[in-house]
């Protein structure tokens, strides 16, 4: 194993809050920093574990109910572990009229999960998104930060294969 192991984001029980402390330090004294703190914490942990949120509430002196309210309001935040690769299938208007439904269906069939689900091997999480803003290439999807356009159901297996 490589030397990065000790800094692994999921970490052991003991160093679970090291990451959080660093993040909180970065935003110390910054007004309205709850959302950036949550964004950074999610980047570090992959999702927002309950223990991390409780710790955050204590250290930022914000009621846990308020943090929970913010987390569940924004679609970007997740309370459950997610796959290594996040697939976002665009459901925007342009994609809709150019057949986004069949693209989503194909991925659901191939990965055997529904939109919102994660594969059992934690390799993929499948989500829908209202619009990616690449309407010229409709229908489109994003895997992590990469955009794929002009999709057909036939093109899906090849794209998924790149991430296996």
């Amino acid at each position: 194993m490589n030397s990065n192991q000790s800094t692994c984001c999921c970490g052991g029980k003991n160093n679970q809050f090291n990451n959080l402390d660093e993040i909180l330090k970065k935003y110390q004294g910054v007004k309205g920093s709850l959302i950036p703190v949550l964004q950074d914490a999610q980047k570090a942990y992959g999702y927002l574990p309950k223990e991390v949120l409780e710790n955050m509430a204590e250290k930022m002196d914000i009621p846990i109910s308020e943090i929970y309210g913010v987390v569940t309001f924004y679609s970007q935040f997740h309370l459950k572990p997610r796959g290594k690769n996040i697939i976002r299938v665009c459901q925007g208007t342009a994609c809709h009229v150019r057949g986004a439904k069949t693209i989503l269906q194909e991925i659901e069939d191939k990965l055997k999960i529904q939109a919102g689900g994660t594969t059992t091997d934690l390799l993929f999480t499948l989500e829908t998104v209202a619009c990616i803003g690449a309407c010229g290439l409709a229908p489109v999807l994003m895997i992590n930060d990469n955009t794929y356009g002009r999709l057909t159901p036939e093109s899906i297996p090849e794209i998924l294969a790149k991430y296996r």
Binding site: K31, I35, V70, F73, S75
Partner: peptide
């Protein structure tokens, strides 16, 4: 952080302040 309603100006400001949009 992914909420369409944040395009509305008062919701957008709430979001900058770190609250629900």
């Amino acid at each position: 952080a992914g909420a369409f309603v944040c395009g509305e100006e008062t919701a957008l400001m709430a979001s900058i302040e770190g609250q629900r949009g």
